[in-house]
Nucleic acid binder design. Structure first.
Lengths: 351, 351
DNA sequence: GTGAAAGCGCTAACAT
DNA sequence: ATGTTAGCGCTTTCAC
């Protein structure tokens, strides 16, 4: 009563063989004009549409590009907009596959790829893959990979430059003690790059790098809070913080306020924008803008170029980041006093 | 040289038949423990993952839900976030299929459905479908359909109430002449509902409905501008405008300013929020908030309920809309003078 | 407990 | 010009 109409139904109704229908469908040479017309009629009448699945099982090419994401959250959603824009006039169709809860945290992308490739999709954009897409039989472009994805074409923000921009901006305001909030060691490559940019800017300005000013934050609320608290409790506390992650930046603000500091009078905060919906987009907060949509767009363009046979123009795009000056940064205070809250923490008089 | 590893590869390597491997994969009864272990080993070793496509061609159920969108733009992207959230602990996987440029404007959803259903997906969420999903062999939930989608479960915002809220708010401020900006007749059902709410609120307040105050706007920039210009050029022009669409609301603002009016002093404007990124989200603009993410979430929940065998709790959810008071509305001016710009348009002295 | 064989909807040789 | 056949990767009887 409800099974979908197949090529066989069309063939029977039109009084021809399935092969003939297939030929009509694919505009193959060797079908009488009259037959073509009749088959077309039946197709329209029955509302037949060939099954993507069956077709892709048989064919090498499907004309479908897959975007594989771990989950659909603000970052990937933003990326999808750009990707969709790029797909628009590429002649390809778009399927977004969300690994979802079922997949464990590590290696989901290879599993998805295995499930979909060879069939269903001609190529894939991997969003924030956690491992190197080792043995994939289809072309793959990685966006913002965790590892420095050797070999695979990659699209990411120009993290080094963005971080340097942020740090230099703080230095320009007069800050010398600038804290850095980043992720744990084996995490996103982008965090490393941001630290690189941070260090580079310090070096450029002749400010010695102080490992004490670098803290891990950004993946657990409580851990991050503690990290910021420690950072601000240093005897020679930073007067500014550059956060590699917008979530950490927000945590930093909250903690600072909790500790009785004023932003930006006592502490300047700037962060890298990852989540387009975070409070970082508040008009008050200084950020390094990451061109998320553009990353999606470029990734698709790159993939299309590869699928089109030609080599992509570039195999490792670093998309420009941008400094957005807003009200959360200011020159350092004339005299840096230890935080008020420190007393209650160490229960001693700050020296 | 690089074709993906299939069930046959696993079978050969393990020295068993493909049937046996399949049984292991699906935890079927009747395989020796030792064999299971060996096969599992080989699977791990080869990194084998069964092909979604082949599997779904053979099986009725795939455990995949499809979200079919015409394109990925801000509205659908927002919706996806909610849908993804709902999928998370539903046991289903998510595939988003974007019809894209290839599909003509009308009926894309049925064509997509045909291509995917029966295979690949167990059920689908149709986002803003333009026609009634007539002959679909799989369960379907429609979100914000163009037509009043009789029969099919539907999720939408409570447009009637939202529009009534907006209109009543303006009335409460003292407005009696309130313009309505909507889409052309045979368009989105939501626009009709919003007009219904608008009319209802007027009736409630004993304000006679004036067809002159209803204009078509929202699908072409120029057309919309002209509509607003005409509306504001009326001898007894409205002192407030309720736009069924955020894009029209923005156009209205721009036109008003162009005509030398001040918002909200000379003209109050309130609009329905459709595009989360539009200027409507500016802190200055009064809006009726549409719970877009929630709509996606509820649609998936409904679909999962249907797929789970049980009837869904409700088959036509109207999700609550919310008035967000901001600075673009005010009481009407004491004396309503025809717009300054009118002179240059009609070249006559307003009476 | 295991494997051979049929078939899901479709396409591409290869007949006729 | 059209039909027959084989087979894509997989699951499922049904023999053995």
């Amino acid at each position: 009563m409800n099974s979908r109409v197949t090529i066989r139904d069309v063939a029977e109704r039109a009084g021809v063989s399935v092969a003939t229908v297939s030929k009509v469908l694919n505009d193959r040479y060797g079908v009488a004009a009259a037959t073509v017309a009749r088959v077309r009629e039946v197709i329209a009448e029955l509302g037949y549409e060939s099954s993507l699945v069956a077709r892709s099982l048989r064919n090498r090419r499907t004309n479908v590009i897959g975007i594989l994401v771990w989950a659909i959250e603000p970052f990937s959603a933003e990326l999808l907009k750009g990707a969709a824009r790029a797909i628009r006039d590429s002649g390809y169709e778009l399927v977004v596959y969300s690994a979802g809860e079922g997949a464990e945290n590590i290696g989901w992308e290879n599993r998805c790829l295995s499930r979909l490739s060879g069939t269903l999709i001609d190529g894939a954009v991997l969003v924030t893959p956690t491992v190197h897409a080792s043995r994939s039989d289809i072309p793959v472009v990685a966006v913002d990979p965790h590892t420095g994805d050797e070999g695979a074409p990659t699209v990411s923000a120009d993290n080094v430059r963005g971080a340097a921009l942020a740090t230099a901006y703080l230095i320009g305001l007069g800050h010398r003690r600038i804290g850095f909030l980043g992720r744990p060691p084996r995490s996103l490559a982008s965090t490393h790059q941001r630290e690189t940019g941070y260090r580079g800017a310090l070096a450029e300005a002749g400010i010695p790098f102080d490992p004490d000013l670098v803290r891990v934050a950004g993946y657990q609320e409580e851990t991050s809070k503690e990290a910021v608290r420690e950072l601000l409790s240093l005897p020679d506390r930073p007067t500014a913080i550059f956060a590699a992650n917008d979530v950490s930046a927000i945590v930093a603000m909250d903690v600072a306020v909790t500790l009785g500091m004023r932003v930006p009078d006592d502490l300047s905060i700037i962060g890298f924008d990852n989540v387009p919906e975070s409070r970082m987009t508040d008009p008050a907060l200084t950020t390094i803008d990451q061109p998320i949509q553009l990353m999606g767009q470029r990734a698709v363009e790159m993939l299309v170029a590869i699928l089109g046979g030609g080599e992509p123009a570039e195999t490792d795009a670093q998309l420009p980041t941008r400094l957005v000056e807003r009200a959360s940064c200011a020159p350092p205070p004339a005299t840096v006093r230890p935080i008020a809250g420190l007393r209650s923490v160490s229960d001693g008089v700050p020296r």
